[in-house]
């Protein structure tokens, strides 16, 4: 049953050291504010799952929160590589991290299997792909009806999933609009879920019947954080701050500059700073 909390409380109550956690979002609706709160609270030894780890995972890895990353595309979207994640993989700075690499199809299927309560996902994939040789979690099964060999990967079952969404109703139902990515599956696959929202409205009485709505009883905690996806965007509220993604490429290129940026913009800031950051976007 969704509980309305401050972001500090929601992270404190739902994210523990050594958890397997997904902060999901597919370019759109990336839960930046929630990730920054996790960094401020200094969680450690996390296993991070994400289809498209971008700036927030770069920040969490660079701050030493992660021991392992499960992913399918690690880049700064439209800009280039993730420099902090590369530094961890290539030079073990600030610590060594383990990586488990999949394709998008595998990750999407693994979340869906987790949401469906299945132990694994079965799909037609990885044929001829090199990832089969470096990721022992990629196996195969034979269809009992046709004999076709199909790829199998374990279901994603995060301890907790964090997402950002447009609206919550007073009852705690959540509406997600636009590019919805894999967020519904990531929430339903997880034991606990935390949703940050732009706005809390009275009710959802007038919504189109087929919209992407997560019922209040499928969510653990909701925090009202306007601008909480910045510099990602929230469809209907503010646009993607492309300049910040470009700036990140410079900030993340240097360890000292990165550490200083994190101190000023994350460690010494709070969730309320996000509303200011999206003004004019």
């Amino acid at each position: 049953m969704a509980k309305f909390q401050s972001l500090q409380e929601a992270v404190r109550d739902n994210l523990r050291d050594e958890d397997t956690v997904a902060f999901e979002g597919f370019t759109h609706l990336i839960p930046h504010a929630a990730a920054h709160e996790a960094i401020r609270q200094g969680r450690k030894d996390l296993t991070l799952i994400r289809m498209t780890p971008d700036i927030i995972y770069d920040q969490m890895i660079g701050m030493g929160l992660a021991k392992k990353v499960v992913f399918s595309y690690a880049g700064n979207p439209g800009v280039g590589l993730l420099r902090r994640m590369r530094d961890a993989i290539e030079n073990s700075w600030p610590r060594a991290i383990e990586t488990v690499e999949h394709s998008h199809a595998a990750m999407a299927n693994a979340y869906e299997a987790g949401a469906a309560g299945l132990p694994c996902a079965v799909f037609r994939g990885y044929r001829g792909a090199g990832l089969r040789d470096v990721n022992p979690e990629i196996r195969s099964v034979t269809c009992p009806f046709t004999g076709e060999e199909l790829a199998a990967v374990p279901a994603h079952r995060p301890d907790v999933t964090f997402i950002h969404a447009q609206k919550a109703s007073r009852r705690g139902d959540v509406l997600i609009e636009g590019i919805i990515g894999v967020q519904k599956e990531a929430v339903l696959a997880a034991r606990r879920s935390v949703v940050t929202v732009e706005e809390i409205v009275e009710d959802f009485d007038d919504l189109h019947p087929n919209l992407c709505v997560l019922p209040h009883w499928a969510i653990t905690s909701i925090a009202h954080v306007p601008g909480g996806a910045h510099p990602s965007y929230t469809h209907g509220y503010y646009e993607r701050d492309n300049a910040s993604y470009l700036e990140w490429d410079k900030v993340s290129a240097d360890r000292d500059l990165f550490t200083q940026w994190m101190r000023t913009n994350v460690l010494e800031a709070g969730p309320e700073a996000f509303a200011e950051r999206v003004k004019g976007l």
């Binding site: 759109h28 979207p77 999407a108 590019i179 519904k184």
Partner: peptide, 25 residues
């Protein structure tokens, strides 16, 4: 042209937008 694969412009001008699992499956 979108800067990223998930720019709002792509969704706003699309016939429909489906979830990522649906897209791949």
């Amino acid at each position: 042209l979108p800067l990223s694969i998930g720019d709002g412009e792509l969704c706003e001008t699309a016939l429909t937008t489906v979830s990522v699992p649906e897209m791949f499956r």
